[in-house]
Amino acid sequence: MTITPRSPRLLLLSAVVLTVLGVALLGMPHGQEPSAPEPSSTATADPSSAASAPPADDKVTVKTAPPTAPAASTPSVLESALPPHGEGVAGDRAVQQTLEAAWPSDLPAADERQLLTAGRALLRADATGVGRTRWPDVFPDSGQAVVPAFATARFRIQAAIARRDGRPNKAVVHLVWAGTDRGGTFTDLRITDLFFTRTLKKGEPTWTPQPRI
């Protein structure tokens, strides 16, 4: 079972990813359409054509609507905002840029590197079962044989950032990833938050992952 703590950060992260990518999609250039001829002052309006014509301010309404989409529409909005399936890593850069734009960096560079390295390794160990012995406090059953939830060869971290979590000695690593589960189903844009606490280890400050609850 993957580490997916229930936190408002997950909902916020999902909303930001959907909003930014949705706006980017709406901003893409479309083929120029011919302007509709201005109706004559003496012409009689056709009720049937008026009923079928889309409102003139549809595009403005979409752009100025509240950014949070209803939960029921999330899958379709997400699907339309992302690159086509099968494009692989081509769309990962956009996801990374979205995270970085949503949460500006607030950690020293050395701490951020350490957190990202640990967060990526911890997520990989959780999803694929590889490297769990490195985290005995997080995976107390790491000495036992574990059937991985996701195939190692089809697991990919699409984007990741590390940020403070309220206090200077607390941090969270936001990860967006893709993988193929045991049933052979591939899904991307999975979201996981991993929480860390800064402690002293052999006199040196280090970031330690919080055990799963």
Rank of each mutant, 00 (worst) to 15 (best):
E38F: 11
A43S: 14
T187C: 08
V16E: 12
T206S: 13
A127H: 03
L194W: 02
E79T: 10
K170V: 00
A145C: 04
T133M: 07
T199H: 06
D106S: 12
I157P: 01
L115V: 05
R190D: 08
D181Q: 02
Q114G: 07
L13A: 13
V16A: 14
W135I: 04
R156M: 07
T199R: 09
A109C: 05
A56Y: 10
I213Q: 14
A162Y: 02
P148Q: 05
L18K: 09
S73D: 11
L11G: 08
S35H: 09
A51Q: 12
F139H: 01
A171R: 03
M28S: 14
V60N: 03
V95S: 02
L13T: 15
A69D: 00
E100V: 12
F139K: 00
A153N: 14
A24Y: 05
A69Q: 03
S7M: 15
R6E: 12
L11A: 14
A151S: 14
T61C: 08
L200I: 08
G131C: 06
L189C: 10
G203Y: 06
K63V: 10
P55R: 10
A24C: 11
L26H: 07
D141V: 02
W207I: 02
S41E: 15
A51I: 10
V62T: 09
S105E: 13
V95A: 03
D165N: 13
L18Y: 04
T180M: 04
P5T: 05
A53P: 00
T44G: 01
S80E: 09
R190Q: 08
T180A: 01
L189R: 13
T68E: 13
V147C: 07
F195D: 04
P47N: 05
I213D: 14
S76I: 09
T187S: 14
K170L: 08
L116H: 11
G166Q: 01
A121E: 15
K59W: 08
R156P: 05
P67M: 02
G31L: 10
I161M: 03
A121W: 01
P83S: 13
T19I: 06
L12Q: 13
L116T: 10
V89G: 11
G203A: 06
A151D: 14
L123R: 05
V146E: 08
S76V: 09
D111V: 10
T44A: 07
L200E: 11
T98W: 03
S14A: 14
L99H: 01
D181T: 03
T19V: 11
Q158M: 05
L122K: 01
L99A: 01
G27K: 06
L123V: 04
V20F: 07
S41G: 07
V147S: 12
P136Y: 07
I213V: 11
K201F: 08
P67V: 04
D165H: 09
S76C: 01
Q144G: 04
G184A: 05
V147Q: 15
S48M: 12
F196N: 04
T4E: 06
L123H: 05
P108G: 05
R9V: 10
A127L: 13
H30M: 06
A162W: 02
L194I: 15
A36N: 09
T44P: 02
V173S: 02
Q144Y: 05
D106I: 00
G179D: 00
R198E: 09
Q32T: 07
L115N: 02
L123S: 02
P37S: 06
W135T: 04
S52G: 03
